Simulated scan of single mutants.
Amino acid sequence: MNVLFLCTGNACRSQMAEGFARHLASERVVVQSAGIEVHGQNERAVVAMDELGIDITPQASTQLTDAMLDEADLVVTVCGHADEQCPLLPPQTRKLHWPLEDPARATGTDDEIMAEFRRIRDEIRERVTELMELVSHGE
């Protein structure tokens, strides 16, 4: 099973989803993330994941390619822009949409912004955990 997490810039939400999926998935699951554009990794996303012992620094902010779409069994869009801009998928590829808010747009103090990153991180963790349970059972 090849799972692809897709967002606008592959900087926060899709990077966190990839990190959780890699951490939770069985060896039968290939996990990638990509963006419609490339914005580089968001340092706050790296910190939020590191707080849970998951290092996403080896992951690269990657632009979506046709090959990624062709290889994907499941594409999970994690923002509205990626959902709207997602190219036509091959007929055998399933698609899920998770309308997650962008923590990079949070405003306020550093503590308030990090609280938003943690909130989104925790929502992503819940969704990825459920998804990996379904995938491991062949659903």
Rank of each mutant, 00 (worst) to 15 (best):
E130N: 13
P103N: 07
P87K: 14
T93C: 15
R125K: 14
E126N: 05
E101Y: 03
L96N: 03
C79P: 06
L74Y: 08
I124P: 07
G108E: 00
C79D: 13
I113L: 11
V75A: 08
R121H: 05
E101K: 07
L88D: 15
D102K: 00
D73L: 06
D102Y: 03
A104K: 03
P103A: 07
A104E: 05
R125G: 02
L89H: 13
T77H: 01
E84T: 13
Q85V: 00
R105A: 12
A115I: 02
E101M: 10
T107A: 09
D73I: 08
M114V: 00
W98Y: 04
G80Q: 13
C86H: 12
Q85E: 15
C79S: 06
R127D: 08
T107K: 12
Q85I: 00
P99F: 11
L96S: 07
T77A: 03
P103T: 06
M132I: 12
R105E: 12
L134C: 01
E116N: 01
V76L: 03
R105T: 12
H97K: 01
D83F: 07
G80H: 10
E101A: 14
G80S: 14
T107N: 09
L74H: 06
W98I: 04
T93E: 15
P91C: 04
H97L: 02
I124L: 10
A106N: 03
M132N: 11
R121T: 03
P99E: 14
D70C: 13
D111V: 05
H97A: 05
T129I: 00
E126I: 09
C79L: 06
E123V: 03
L88N: 15
L88G: 07
E116H: 08
E112A: 10
R118T: 00
R125H: 12
D102R: 02
V78Y: 00
D111H: 05
P103Q: 05
T109N: 02
Q92D: 15
V78D: 01
P90L: 14
E71H: 12
A82C: 06
D110P: 14
A115C: 06
D73S: 13
L131E: 07
E133W: 07
P99I: 11
D73G: 15
W98R: 01
R105V: 07
A72H: 05
C86V: 11
D122I: 07
L131K: 03
D73T: 09
L69G: 14
L74I: 07
D83V: 06
T77P: 07
T109P: 04
A106E: 03
I124Q: 08
A106K: 00
A104V: 05
G108W: 02
A82R: 10
D83G: 00
A115N: 05
E116V: 00
L69Y: 09
A72Q: 02
R121Q: 05
T107E: 13
L100M: 14
V128E: 05
G108A: 06
E84P: 02
E133D: 10
G108I: 07
P87V: 15
V76M: 01
D73E: 10
D122L: 08
T107G: 09
V78W: 01
R94K: 14
W98A: 02
E133A: 13
V75W: 09
C86D: 04
H97C: 01
P99C: 10
I124R: 10
D110Q: 14
L134D: 09
